[in-house]
Design a binder for these strands. Structure first.
Lengths: 238, 238
DNA sequence: CGGTTGCTTGAGATCCATCAATAGGAGTGG
DNA sequence: CCACTCCTATTGATGGATCTCAAGCAACCG
């Protein structure tokens, strides 16, 4: 069974057996999507909170000039919206990158669960605050990091995030994004993604082949990419 | 009296007289800061939520290579942290850009007020969700907009935000950022900020002189900057 | 006044985007 | 199994956007 959501939230609060059961009970209403599909489109009025149970998805916007920016990645266990309030209409789209299993959760139900179970409320807040911290770091990345630093930083962040849900094995992890996806995520062209990946490879830091990232030198990668994991930890209790 | 906070939150929920009094009562504990000073530094353990009553401030990070990225601007009435949980330590700094008056609010007090007054809770959530939407738009700006589009988009966003707190007059508004500040905010060099401003001026769209922005052609500015205000409205009730 | 800060301009270097073409790999149908 | 197609990855060449360095200028301030 795919338990990534519970596994992730355990990092945000200590959950009892009952808490975990309550969380799993939220994930009954499940949909499956093909890769490169929209779960929700800009302008839609959402009726449920989406939870990624399996696969990779993203939040993105399209500009009038045709350019696309991926705003954030959703990995297994990630929630696509804050639990409290849904927008009147979406100002962005949610799309899949791989085959994805999504749970639709009613905001009323999740609010009720959060009210009854303080540890769940705490964990949901932790998740939200972590997402905000990652958003802030994205701004720094796009504003001030070079192309290869952006890639290296992303691989470091994914390493930490995937580790939280048990999806890191040994030297690396499955990473199903195409170079074109990486371009949309990191604000660069596909061609330049390719060349920057070659730089990282030549420096003996990381390789990306097939759908897999292999980290050859984690410390080196972190320092050359200016990766400081502080932002992923500042809301986690000691 | 500086009432920007209440004025802003009115856009997020309809507040009663009592609600507004309760909000004002939160702002008793006030500090003043000089321009270009830190209110809170990265690594600090914060004990209070900061509320900008007057002046402009920002959230920023410094990279190891000395570069600075401003992550978000705080205008009068803006809250610097979500009301629910403070981090164990700051992953970024809060700094002033002008002389700033800050209210320090204890999270316990604000949580209590939110629990007793549902409209306040709603307004605080609205504020948080709006801040997140602005953060998403920043990512799009930094990832996919050209230098002059970034500037134009910023001026459009500020026009909307300042209008919400009554700080727009006629053709423009006070805008105390230096060109160096704009560079740190928009991920570009000071020199290039200067040249891009000249482009906007030459196109008859906007001018920036002294501490003032004057919008010469709002529709033109919005369309050339790819500014779509949707993201600032999607959580506002009809 | 002299010092400081912010703005402006020029020149040259660098990074990255764009365009265009090729190559590889996976899936499909005959 | 082969031919075909599609998608992704790769490479080269060129131009444009932006950065860096350096210098001059303007406004403000004690």
């Amino acid at each position: 069974m795919s338990d990534f959501f519970v596994q992730k939230l355990r990092h945000g609060a200590s959950l009892s057996e009952d808490d975990e059961r309550a969380l799993r009970a939220l994930c009954m209403n499940v949909d499956k999507f093909d890769p490169q599909n929209d779960v929700t489109m800009e302008g839609d009025k959402p009726k449920s909170i989406k939870l990624v149970l399996e696969g990779w998805a993203c939040r993105y916007k399209l500009l009038e000039n045709g350019k696309r920016q991926i705003i954030s990645l959703f990995l297994p266990g990630d929630m696509c919206e804050p639990y409290m309030t849904l927008p009147q209409f979406m100002d962005h789209s949610l799309g899949t990158l791989t085959p994805v299993t999504v749970a639709r959760v009613s905001p009323e139900v999740i609010k009720a669960v959060a009210r009854e179970r303080p540890q769940i409320e705490k964990a949901l807040w932790w998740d939200l605050l972590l997402a905000m911290a990652m958003g802030r770091e994205s701004i720094v990345t796009l504003g001030r990091r070079s192309a290869s630093e952006r890639l290296g930083h992303l691989f470091c962040e994914l390493h930490v995030r995937l580790d939280k849900v048990g999806l890191v094995d040994g030297l690396g992890y499955e990473m199903p994004l195409t170079q074109s996806n990486l371009g949309d995520l990191l604000g660069m062209s596909t061609v330049h993604v390719n060349r920057s990946l070659q730089e990282l490879r030549a420096a003996g830091l990381v390789t990306m082949h097939g759908r897999r990232v292999t980290i050859l030198n984690l410390e080196g990668l972190r320092s050359t990419s200016l990766f400081d994991p502080t932002y992923l930890q500042s809301y986690t209790q000691a």
